Amino acid sequence: MSVNEPQDNPDGYVGLDAAHAERLARERGWSTVRSLAPGAIITMEYRFGRLNFEVRDGRVARAWKG
């Protein structure tokens, strides 16, 4: 596991197919990739190295770190 968080812009995943986006994020060094349904109830703690995707109709609608 890398000590540095990937220097990757989450906005670049918006619009991608969710499965492809997850593979790409892992290739780019994200240790955890979490796909969530719109409106999902989640904890708000920040997790270093985690990338979150809100997925609608199989595509990433929103992406953010933590």
Score class of each variant (00 low, 15 high):
M1R: 03
S2D: 12
S2P: 14
V3M: 12
V3C: 06
V3W: 07
N4M: 09
N4Y: 08
E5H: 01
E5K: 03
P6L: 02
P6M: 03
P6K: 02
Q7S: 13
Q7M: 13
D8Q: 04
N9R: 10
N9L: 11
N9A: 14
N9Y: 09
P10Q: 12
P10L: 13
P10S: 13
D11H: 10
D11K: 15
D11N: 14
G12C: 05
G12T: 03
G12V: 00
G12I: 02
Y13Q: 08
V14W: 06
G15R: 08
G15E: 11
G15S: 10
G15L: 09
G15P: 02
D17P: 02
D17R: 07
A18L: 01
A18K: 04
A19C: 05
A19T: 13
A19K: 08
A19Y: 08
A19I: 09
H20A: 15
H20K: 14
H20R: 13
A21N: 06
A21S: 01
A21Y: 04
E22L: 13
E22Y: 02
R23K: 15
R23W: 03
L24W: 05
L24T: 11
R26Y: 05
R26I: 08
R26A: 03
E27Y: 08
E27Q: 15
R28C: 00
R28K: 15
G29K: 03
G29R: 06
G29T: 09
G29V: 07
W30I: 00
W30G: 02
W30R: 05
W30A: 03
S31P: 00
S31A: 13
T32S: 06
T32M: 01
V33M: 02
V33T: 01
R34C: 07
R34D: 02
R34L: 13
S35L: 07
L36N: 09
L36V: 09
L36R: 08
L36Y: 06
L36T: 06
A37Y: 07
A37M: 10
A37D: 15
P38Y: 14
P38W: 09
P38E: 14
P38I: 13
A40R: 10
A40D: 14
A40E: 12
A40N: 05
A40K: 04
I41V: 15
I41P: 05
I42Y: 11
T43Q: 15
T43L: 13
T43A: 14
M44W: 07
M44T: 11
M44C: 06
M44R: 04
Y46M: 11
Y46V: 13
Y46S: 14
R47Q: 13
F48M: 02
F48V: 05
G49V: 07
R50N: 00
L51T: 00
N52R: 05
N52V: 00
F53W: 07
F53Y: 04
E54D: 07
V55S: 08
V55C: 11
V55F: 12
V55Q: 10
V55D: 07
V55N: 05
R56C: 01
R56T: 13
R56A: 06
R56S: 10
R56G: 03
R56M: 07
D57N: 15
D57P: 09
D57E: 15
D57G: 14
G58W: 11
G58P: 15
V60W: 01
V60D: 02
V60N: 01
A61N: 12
A61L: 12
A61V: 12
A61T: 12
R62N: 10
R62L: 07
A63C: 13
A63T: 12
W64C: 00
W64S: 05
K65D: 05
K65E: 01
G66K: 06
G66D: 11
